[in-house]
Design a protein around this nucleic acid. Sequence first.
DNA 1: AGGAATATGTTGTCTAAACCACAAAATTTG
DNA 2: CAAATTTTGTGGTTTAGACAACATATTCCT
Lengths: 219, 219
Amino acid sequence: MDMNFYKKNILFQGMSEQDIENTLNCLNAYKRSYHKHEAIYHAGSSTSFVGLIYKGSVIVERNDFWGNRTILTSFSEGDFFGEAYAMNSKAVIPVDIIASEATTVIFIEIGRLVSQSCNVPHVTQQLILNLLKMSLQKNMFLSNRSFLLASHTMREKILGYLNTVSLQNHSKEFEIPFDRQQLADFLNIERTALSKELSKMQKEGIIEYKKNKFKLLSN
Amino acid sequence: MDMNFYKKNILFQGMSEQDIENTLNCLNAYKRSYHKHEAIYHAGSSTSFVGLIYKGSVIVERNDFWGNRTILTSFSEGDFFGEAYAMNSKAVIPVDIIASEATTVIFIEIGRLVSQSCNVPHVTQQLILNLLKMSLQKNMFLSNRSFLLASHTMREKILGYLNTVSLQNHSKEFEIPFDRQQLADFLNIERTALSKELSKMQKEGIIEYKKNKFKLLSN
DNA sequence: AGGAATATGTTGTCTAAACCACAAAATTTG
DNA sequence: CAAATTTTGTGGTTTAGACAACATATTCCT
């Protein structure tokens, strides 16, 4: 067991190694690997397990009747997914969750936290508090995404997105976790229109980019 | 103190009247009234208080540089707002929160929950668990909103929205909490285009409506 | 390495929806 | 209650961006 991995994770903050190990046992944690493009959850299923990405990354997407794909977000090492559904196992997952490269996921049956407290109240409370922090954070992220999608023009969306990533990285130069098609889907615009707008913005001296490495220019 | 109001609320589920009263005292709860269009929070401010709507309703909106307004959502009696910011008082509120009619709000200093436990661990734990449930629920709502905004056509957005409200009300007939301008802002489309599309859909026999009362037709 | 496969970029056409300028209905108020 | 104000609806025009059809660049294999 890679204790270092767990100790770094938000969910286990404020917990001793012994507590972490007990928790993982009590909550039926197990590890599973997926290859690129393999589905982790299909839309329509339910679960009481939260997914914690040990290695690799996943894409959360919705595919509608007519085959339109919308990427909601991507998650990478150390991120969680599915916690809202794990805590309410009657709820149906409305999205597909897909490994975007070779990915290993740790599943933790967080749904048991409330019903069965693993006989260590103090630890249970810490876990719930940590979950709350995560959830509130994700909340802010989702609100932000709404703002992005709500932008009126393609350029506003693109700059809004690049700006967010720039702020997260505390740098005007950064890599984005999407290829063009994925970025287009994330911003809900058409791929070729995105390419068109990006090169226009480069010509205008607003940004510089090559593949998924971007640089914001101020003048 | 209107104990019935509190007992019905999610935040206080599983708590005795005595617990609720103690909690409110410990967390510096107070009540304040606003008139229509008055701002409750301005973008850029911070707080350690969560708002609980006692009477009336509020609109959460963002106003950008160029005066474009985007309505994120509306809240009504019994709903909470600002909890993500109250639990992390360093975070800055990125939206305006406005009373959309005469509104009374109860403010609760939820930020104190972690630092000072009001000396009743069991109650603190219940509160945090309830907060978690609320947050996860809001999470699913926000995800849904993203899907709506991500829809490719106006019609998809409109039907998607009406469908959601219909499901919430368990009925094909329902009222929506927005006037036309607000609905247009919520779906991020132009008001007159919305009117146009709505009447087209009515002519096609897909829906019936009058003002903010809608009916979904199956054939 | 070199061909296949995949990702990115370019140009042009066409349409959904924004935008504008009102008309009509509904609501408020003096 | 009529005038004023606010909300909703209807045409016509314009345009951003979807969509189609490729060109070019990059990466993936054997």
